[in-house]
């Protein structure tokens, strides 16, 4: 088994986590092969092994087509890997479940339901009484900053607001792991920044495990405890980098922090290198 070297030794060890971390997600030698329309095999993921600690914010960073979303879908149970296994708390993942809540770039809200109806959907499915589900959902809607929009339909909302609803809808059924698939990828820069800040604020309250797929280096460094860098064709883990920056993180402070800048520059440099290798071959 190829062991992926961690760069963490080059940086100061993290001091943020107090309790001993236990593994919540284990990905063991996972490969994913798709058959393309020309009947050629396309290796989306090749021999991926990765463990994710409970309560960690982990980003999977990579260029488009490196299979980072596919990896997330495998953990979600939406896609079965061609080889290897993904485990949640030691149990092999065989399908989707409420312990792993997805948030997609496309929002995937239920357009026939109001904001409140969308957020209540999960708890109601889990058998929570209507009055209780409604009270909880209203609180969540307030938490994501959408108080007053409870009775709006998704089509009446902007992209950023839709993604807030999607986040609230997923949080409403209390998943142990949040699976975020480029959630801010379809938003403009300003909205994106605001949602990143709000996501961090919400995350810092209960420190749920988050697996966050992105192609933005800034976003990955700003949000994460750990950044998993992937390279493409075939999709492999290139590097796992611990991000040792103090929490709670404030964007205006962080942008001026030389450590933050160093992470960003270093990661970008590594991507440039791999691009050169890619273009030479």
């Amino acid at each position: 088994m190829k062991v992926v070297p961690s760069r963490s030794s080059e940086w100061v060890r993290p001091v943020t986590s107090q309790r001993p971390a236990s593994t919540i997600i284990g990905i063991d030698r996972v490969s994913q092969v798709f058959q393309t329309s020309t009947r050629k095999d396309h290796v989306a993921l090749s021999d991926i092994s990765l463990t994710i600690d409970e309560g960690a914010f982990v980003s999977i960073l990579g260029p488009s087509g490196c299979g980072k979303s596919t990896l997330l879908y495998i953990v979600g149970g939406f896609v079965s890997p061609t080889r290897g296994t993904a485990r949640m708390k030691g149990q092999p993942i065989t399908g989707p479940g409420p312990d792993r809540g997805p948030v997609f770039q496309e929002f995937a809200l239920f357009p026939w339901k109001t904001v409140l109806g969308n957020v209540m959907y999960g708890p109601r499915q889990q058998g929570v009484r209507a009055t209780e589900a409604e009270a909880q959902s209203r609180m969540l809607i307030q938490m994501v900053g959408l108080k007053g929009y409870e009775n709006f339909y998704p089509k009446e909302l902007s992209g950023g607001m839709k993604q807030r609803v999607a986040l609230a809808r997923t949080l409403a059924y209390h998943p142990e792991v949040l699976l975020m698939d480029e959630p801010f990828g379809a938003l403009d820069a300003h909205t994106r920044t605001r949602l990143q800040n709000d996501l961090l604020n919400i995350w810092e309250r209960d420190r749920k495990t988050v697996l966050f797929v992105t192609h933005s280096v800034d976003e990955a460094v700003f949000l994460s405890d750990k950044v998993v860098m992937m390279s493409k064709s075939p999709g492999r883990i290139r590097e796992v980098i611990d991000i040792d920056l103090p929490r709670p993180r404030r964007r205006n402070e962080l942008l001026l922090d030389p450590r933050y800048q160093k992470y960003v520059v270093e990661i970008e440099r590594m991507f440039d290198e791999s691009d050169e290798v890619g273009s030479a071959s």
């Binding site: 939406f78 409420p98 995937a108 239920f110 499915q125």
Partner: peptide, 22 residues
Amino acid sequence: EEKMLWSGAAMGLSPLQRLVRI
């Protein structure tokens, strides 16, 4: 949308429930 069905599946909807309710 496939992702809408995935969202439902993650909430615990069975295939039949997804057909009727999504």
